[in-house]
């Protein structure tokens, strides 16, 4: 009994060694790994070198950054309404630009998205064409569009709103299409079996499933456009960014810092508000019609 138990243990030890040997990677694989990590390290170093990331430059830069940061204290506090009003207006304008731009973009993207969804548009080439169209619009960064629209529509929030709207058409249409595609076919089948038309299938079977996701996407986009909206002002497309750029170029750093602080507060508030709303939408929300 004890003899057989011992030989059993021996056998298992041999088997374990064999398994270990098999699990050890082949030399070719090991070499490939070293080569790959060496390559990445080389690329990283090349980038540092080409952008002149010298330690001396970095330390002087950090020193100056400290200097700039020191302007934050004491923080600038607007004491009279006349000086604070434009700041508040700028913040509200940024928010309004984000809201209007997102809404306009969503209004155009929503009908288009159906044409890009596999379960709605069965004509493969047409659908692919729509999808490529969405991708093409997406390649235009909002800031680039803003620069173009300022030329056409002049300085101010209109250019900013249009920049946000146009760039979001591609983005939202693509995301909406995916939301529509990710719906279950079963309710659609149920509606069809009850004598529903194609449109009724979409209205009753697809939309109740997709609409909470679509609303959630719109909220998230609004949230991210609030951030984007602050930059747009810097190039002159309206909003708080214009004021910020103005104060920085006038070396009024204390005021600039206070504006940045207000922007952070606004973005944070919108973020948490929309996060709460989105959780509500995805969860037990009754208004999914």
């Amino acid at each position: 009994m004890s003899v057989s138990a011992k030989s059993d243990a021996d056998f298992r030890a041999v088997a374990r060694r064999k398994l270990l040997a098999e699990l050890r990677p082949a030399p070719a694989v090991v070499a490939k790994r070293y080569l790959l990590s060496g390559g990445f390290l080389g690329l990283f170093c090349f980038c540092l070198w080409s952008f002149d990331f010298s330690p001396a430059r970095t330390t002087t830069g950090v020193g100056r950054l400290g200097h700039v940061l020191s302007f934050m204290f004491p923080p600038h506090i607007w004491t009279n309404w006349a000086s604070f009003q434009p700041v508040l207006e700028g913040l509200c304008q940024t928010l309004a630009m984000a809201f209007l731009g997102t809404l306009l973009g969503a209004a155009v993207a929503f009908p288009l998205s159906f044409l890009g969804a596999k379960n709605i548009n069965r004509y493969g080439i047409f659908r692919q064409g729509m999808r490529r169209g969405f991708d093409f619009i997406r390649t235009f960064e909002t800031l680039v569009l803003a620069l173009i629209f300022i030329r056409a529509f002049g300085l101010g929030p209109l250019a900013g709103v249009l920049a946000i709207a146009v760039s979001e058409v591609g983005n939202l249409a693509k995301l909406f299409s995916e939301a529509i595609e990710n719906t279950s076919k079963k309710p659609v089948e149920g509606v069809r079996a009850a004598g529903g038309s194609r449109l009724q299938e979409i209205r009753y079977g697809v939309l109740p499933q997709a609409s909470p996701v679509i609303l959630s996407i719109i909220l998230y986009t609004f949230e991210s456009n609030t951030r984007t909206g602050t930059i747009l002002g810097v190039v002159g497309a309206g909003g708080i960014g214009f004021l910020l750029a103005d104060r920085i170029s006038a070396y009024r750093w204390d005021e600039a810092w206070s504006i940045i602080f207000l922007i952070v507060v606004m973005v944070y508030l919108i973020d948490s508000l929309s996060a709460k709303l989105r959780a509500l939408l995805i969860g037990g929300w009754e208004g999914g019609k």
Partner: peptide, 19 residues
């Protein structure tokens, strides 16, 4: 069952009338 899970029961039943 193939119901529309996000809609209430009454609306699901009313889908039987959409023809």
């Amino acid at each position: 069952f193939n119901l529309i899970e996000r809609l209430d029961v009454l609306t699901n039943v009313l889908v039987g009338r959409i023809a």
